[in-house]
Design a protein around this nucleic acid. Structure first.
Lengths: 350, 350
DNA sequence: ATTGACAACCAAAACGTTTTGGATTATGAT
DNA sequence: ATCATAATCCAAAACGTTTTGGTTGTCAAT
């Protein structure tokens, strides 16, 4: 027992293993392991002794050994769709913050990879699954038909999705109700007297594009002004794309009096396009967005948009996945968040 | 040999191990392992056989077992300083993209955690180190005295830093030359005839705050207009902070004719503050930023700022760390990126 | 004196790899 | 025939844990 301190200094540079503790306490490896895990076939004194010595020696379990043995990784995978130098969307930062905080809270690790969506996206999921690197996945940026979901289902790896796909939705997800959000936007514009409402929509293969577009169509239809094909443009989700689309729209013989962009970035682009033509946004033309990124509040004019609680969604998605991994059943396995219309000046409201 | 296909279907649901391949090929575990790693004490036929069978059975090595054995993780750690719902800065998204892409390129994994900088930040580094979860770290958002660096140095875990600290810099880092960037900004404003130049600086404990502030001071000093204490305000890095600081500055008896903010977000806030007072940004007052976030180009007016290639910095930092981990010596272990002044309308240039 | 129950402990197997240190066989040279 | 060499192969140990299936000793009840 008194040689203990000696052993301590001696092994200080190397990693302390359970075996070292066994040697130091004179107990067996088994007993040490069980003492550390508070099994009840270890006497109180032994537990105390072992735990004290472990603390003194600065023992931390070797996670690979634990994981190898337990056949569990306590790690969740998040694969980000990047395009070149940028994350696919500015709000992915908030999403990561939400997921990361929640994962940390439950002492799960978060394994992040980046992957351009155009390349063989599935390959990276396969690698992580087959190398048994993660217990489950969080999937973001869904497409109408999403191979990732099909794949994870066939190999029976748990996952939770931020977003939805087309067709059967027999998997756990969190999504915002893009249709309702867009309906609110359009209703509001109609109430303000706008009639010639144009829409800049994201690429059709992205599922949320369809939800949001449908919202625009629904609201217009309902009030008897169905969306004219010429007033709908597709653009990638960037400002540049929004700018270009808006320029086309504003060059039409009968100019629209409102542009409803399906995300904030494209709305910023649309505002720039209008301003370059000398139009006053909020008067000559209304512009709206979706996402309520931090910049929306401070653009000029401030952007009317739809608020999405991305941080909370990240945390929820992560929480659901962890519950699933722990074998709990989810009280609610499909969650649709009600979005909130945020009225600022770009739509021309007082 | 012909029972092979049978074995395949039988074990299809379970994970295929090296042992299964040994059984299927009739070779020993050792030989299979060596064949897969292309050792030259395995005959060509055997290699072929083993590799074919491994492919057929869909073998992927169990990474935990490999790592336990190899005492290496091929994983790098990145701990993000989050504050509440947001990543500390909007450009962290780009940083993650850069780091992630480079890590993937070299088949390293990226373990991401989030951590509020106020809490016991070191704890999470310790956990990852002691659990031997990562081979090395990327450190971001340095403070003047950075405990993380001290700690990693004492435990002898490799790391590369984005940013610098005060004092000795005997560690590998990449940073942008904030001083030079700010000097360029101020020189430009002076050239445009601005004389009463105010500065909104970040919290003093952040090292980059000092570099940038020093640039402002240097340039003003050099031209004989030293920075008046009253014209310098500290603010957190948010728009809201910038807005408040700018409001204070604009309420001064002798109003400044230029506000140099130390990042884009605060500059946006400053522009809002000026515009709320009916001032025309670019005429009545010049406003500049730093970072060249994607929004800078599309703000109204577009923001004059300093471009930082964050994606590239992320990739470089990651690349350097990987080289270190692989035992290579870096040709250049401290890199200072020359920033580039981006002149747009907010400073009042033609 | 047995028996059974209980408390406290532990040896060995297992997780899936890689590496060490031979063992075996074939080939050619003497 | 013998020996050295090279070409293949493999058993066993190791990495650090957890778990299985015990053993041992004590005490109380028969």
């Amino acid at each position: 027992m008194w040689c203990l301190r000696f052993a301590l200094t001696e092994t200080a540079t190397m990693a302390v293993t359970i075996k070292d503790i066994a040697r130091a306490t004179g107990k067996s490896i088994t007993t040490v392991s069980r003492a550390l895990h508070d099994y009840d076939d270890v006497s109180a004194e032994t537990k105390q002794l072992v735990q004290r010595v472990a603390a003194e020696m600065g023992y931390t379990p070797n996670l690979w050994a634990q994981r190898l043995q337990k056949q569990r990784t306590d790690t969740i995978g998040l694969i980000l769709p990047t395009q070149g130098p940028r994350l696919g969307d500015p709000f992915f930062g908030q999403l990561i913050a939400g997921v990361g905080d929640k994962a940390g809270e439950h002492s799960y690790d978060l394994l992040v990879s980046t992957q351009a969506p155009d390349a063989d996206e599935l390959a990276i999921y396969k690698r992580k699954v087959q190398g048994r690197q993660v217990d489950g996945f969080i999937i973001v940026r869904t497409r109408r038909q999403d191979l990732r979901i099909d794949y994870l289902r066939t190999v029976d790896v748990p996952f939770v999705v931020f977003g939805r796909t087309e067709g059967d939705l027999d998997y756990p997800f969190v999504d915002e109700d893009g249709t309702a959000g867009m309906e609110a936007v359009v209703e509001h514009l109609l109430r303000l007297g706008r009639r010639r409402i144009a829409c800049i929509a994201p690429p059709a293969e992205l599922m949320f594009a369809e939800h949001r577009l449908r919202g625009v169509q629904n609201a217009l239809q309902r009030h008897g002004y169905p969306l004219e094909p010429d007033l709908m443009r597709r653009a990638d989700l960037t400002q540049r794309g929004g700018l270009r689309a808006a320029q086309e729209l504003l060059a039409l013989p009968r100019r629209p009096d409102a542009i409803v962009a399906c995300n904030d970035l494209m709305a910023f682009g649309a505002m720039s396009a209008a301003q370059k033509l000398g139009l006053v946004v909020g008067q000559d033309i209304a512009v709206t967005g979706f996402d309520d990124t931090p910049w929306a509040e401070h653009s000029h004019p401030p952007l009317t948009t739809v608020h999405q609680p991305i941080y909370e969604i990240g945390a929820m998605v992560c929480d659901m996945l962890i519950r699933i991994l722990q074998g709990q059943t989810l009280e609610q396995q499909q969650i649709l968040m009600e979005p909130r219309l945020v009225i600022r000046q770009s739509c021309g409201a007082a």
